[in-house]
Design a protein around this nucleic acid. Sequence first.
DNA 1: TGCCAGGCCCTCTTTAGGGCCTT
Length: 204
Amino acid sequence: MHENANSLVVLDFETTGLSPNQGDRAIEIGAVRIVNGKVTDKFQSLMNPGFLISRFIEQYTGISNQMLAKVGSCGEVMAEFADFLGDDNLLAHNASFDQKFLDAELNNIARKYSGQFICSLLVSRRINTDAPNHKLGTLIRYKNIPSDGAFHRALFDAEMTAKLWLSMLDDIEEKINHEFVPFSLIQKLSKTAKGDVNKLLAKW
DNA sequence: TGCCAGGCCCTCTTTAGGGCCTT
């Protein structure tokens, strides 16, 4: 773990379905790097999964088979992403989903990463207790974060997740009356029962 | 043939079920 590293990569995958164990693959990755509370770098690429994607996924993402026919393979793109990621920790909205695709795609090319994941969905459930639900689009509206792009494209969703995250970090900083929120506190918070969240933050 | 994700989290809970999230 990189307790003192203040560099975090926020990522989002578009995929052919919900489960790499069922043969699903990534078709797009988008990511932004946050350093000291500012977005400093970004990464975006379509990737060809090696088979035709369903009509449902074409409509859901706006990514067509025609678009994917012209782009590099998952292996080529994921190797570039592994270089971009380096040793940074990672954040995603519903991280268990993106983590299983990252693990599967990097495993396919025998690459590894050393960072740890945190999940903006788990943190939101503990911080935004009045939100109508915890979908990414809903939380962006709930936090009054301006957005003028298409959800369900990887870079846009990663950028929105990054903005949501910085907004939630502000809220946590206010609660703990401290300007720096350690990575370990986020990890602890993500596992704390909802009713004990205020207790955890109060004693920090 | 028919089935097919899975982790989190709440509750009418732990010998379980079902909604929420992600594509």
